[in-house]
Write a protein that binds this DNA or RNA. Structure first.
Lengths: 197, 197
DNA sequence: CTATAATTAAACAAAATAAGTATAATTTTA
DNA sequence: TAAAATTATACTTATTTTGTTTAATTATAG
């Protein structure tokens, strides 16, 4: 009746997650085999299959972990006593840094896996909910212009992300921090109620 | 009787070589499939197998091409009218740059492929021959100290290569050019007959 | 110390992927 | 426009990967 397996976040589990993440980032998902992850993580195949039904379940849990971390970060920022605009800026920068850190290879392959489409849709929905939540906070605080709709806000955020990772823009602003700041300044100039408008 | 296939270095052939090299450098040899190379190179599988019996034959031809290019470079340098010591310096720098450019992944995997061991041994033997040839030129020109043996010369070169790619040394001398210059200065100080000795 | 849970190692069948070939059709090129 | 080069497709065979089963080993809590 001793239930040690309740150490759900056991050391082996974390080793698999970390190694999987590392290998997926470097080589993409399809190139990496379960056995490879096990060897690199110093874990037997049986242990892997104890925690994950298959490779795609591992992928899901990695992404879920990333999302959770992201939500936690957002919540921390939103609880701070700083201007709303500053909160949004920090959130955006954190998100884009995350995308950069994990690289395109992993995300782009992840998004195209047919079996994962329902999961991806749900993650997306969660993300949108969070964005709307932030948006509503801004509205409530009177920090966002009245005529900006949530849809347009989302649209701006999406394009900010695309532009922030654009290779041409990287040539113009090589430093990521500066690039993102500039993009926020330009794209969100008319969104926030600052002294200037 | 028209023999177009005598375009041995045809455009398709070069595309396969280039794409294969690129993919092997990024992901190593074992992870890359023949079909993947074909797709990326815009070439059908049949064309691939016209030029190469299999993936390892492609690997061989890539390495042979690299070696040939290296030998050509050495011959050019040696034909120039510059001090012997300067020739050796340029050759060493070129070789180490080559190793860096192709990265560890490709070379390390390449060197461990069992089926390629005879080929590797031959390439090695050719390389050693070339080194000895250069050494003998130096001896003939009186540019190398009398008591330096070819074996010791080779030993020094080998360790120069190892040290030039050492991560710890990279922290001390981040710039590769400076690092190699310094190593040559120190390790070969007693090899060349310079005004100072 | 000892029972129990956790992990491993090895062997294995089934599934999936990759290799390599044969054929006919299409495209290039001279 | 005819020969050569290339492709597309379909296919068989080989190899790799998956996921499971089993028994043995290791770690741990009481």
């Amino acid at each position: 009746m001793n239930k040690k397996q309740n150490n759900i976040k056991s050391i082996k589990y974390r080793q698999i997650i970390e190694t999987g993440t590392k290998l997926f980032i470097r080589h993409g998902i399809k190139r990496i085999t379960v056995e490879e992850i096990c060897e690199e993580a110093g874990v037997s195949k049986m242990t892997f299959y104890k925690f994950f039904a298959n490779k795609l379940e591992l992928v899901k849990q990695i992404v879920t972990g990333m999302m959770d971390e992201g939500f936690k970060f957002v919540d921390n920022i939103m609880a701070q006593d700083i201007p709303y605009e500053e909160k949004v800026r920090q959130n955006i920068k954190h998100k884009i840094e995350g995308i950069r850190k994990y690289g395109d290879l992993f995300f782009e392959e992840f998004l195209r896996i047919p079996e994962l489409q329902p999961y991806i849709a749900e993650m997306n929905s969660n993300a949108v909910k969070k964005i709307i939540e932030i948006f509503n906070t801004g509205k409530a605080e009177g920090a966002i212009r009245e005529d900006i709709t949530p849809e347009f806000y989302q649209y701006l955020l999406g394009h900010l992300s695309i532009m922030g990772n654009d290779d041409n823009l990287k040539k113009v602003f090589p430093d990521m921090g500066h690039r993102i700041e500039t993009l926020i300044d330009v794209l969100f100039h008319g969104v926030f109620k600052t002294p200037s408008n």
